[in-house]
């Protein structure tokens, strides 16, 4: 049967930083072709095709974030595969090879992670699930 693409609306202007991306103007209607869990979604908008940040989109229909999983406060163990330096105060600065707990996998690609007593955001693309099990 025909493939029905979901329509999203741009909530703000966005200027692309590479040829793979497309510019957005607030109010643009986009059809989403692929939702990558790293927070970049592949879309088409009229004749343009490319990647846009999911954080700048809202669904045209349906409840907000219907697909987004609930927080899992127990946490899942992930390893950082790339260092990231926080640019905002609610983000984490971590080196590659650190073990953290993921407690909320957000569609915008910024996951809430916990390390010790602290929580903060970290880019999901720099995380890899470990084979480790949490101690009881």
């Amino acid at each position: 049967g025909p493939i029905i693409l979901e329509t999203y609306r741009a909530i703000s202007d966005y200027s692309k930083n590479s040829k793979r991306e497309v510019d957005l103007s607030a109010g643009d209607m986009l059809e989403i072709i692929e939702k990558n869990p790293n927070g970049w979604w592949f879309c088409q908008c009229e004749s343009r095709r490319g990647w846009v940040p999911a954080s700048y989109l809202e669904p045209l229909e349906g409840p907000d974030e219907a697909e987004e999983p609930e927080p899992n406060y127990e946490g899942e163990l992930y390893e950082t595969i790339k260092a990231y330096t926080a640019t905002q105060e609610d983000e984490f600065t971590l080196q590659a090879g650190e073990i953290i707990e993921v407690i909320h996998k957000l569609l915008d690609g910024w996951w809430v992670v916990r390390k010790g007593e602290e929580t903060g955001y970290y880019p999901s693309m720099f995380l890899c699930k470990t084979g480790l099990r949490k101690e009881a």
Binding site: S12, Y14, K19, N38, G39, W40, G50, S55, W110, T119
Partner: peptide
């Protein structure tokens, strides 16, 4: 290739539209 997503983290939501989740 355009089929591959950008290799850098996507931008955070615009500050005025960000939901507080932590």
């Amino acid at each position: 290739s355009i089929k591959e997503p950008p290799q850098n983290p996507p931008p955070r939501p615009p500050a005025d539209l960000r939901r507080k989740r932590l």
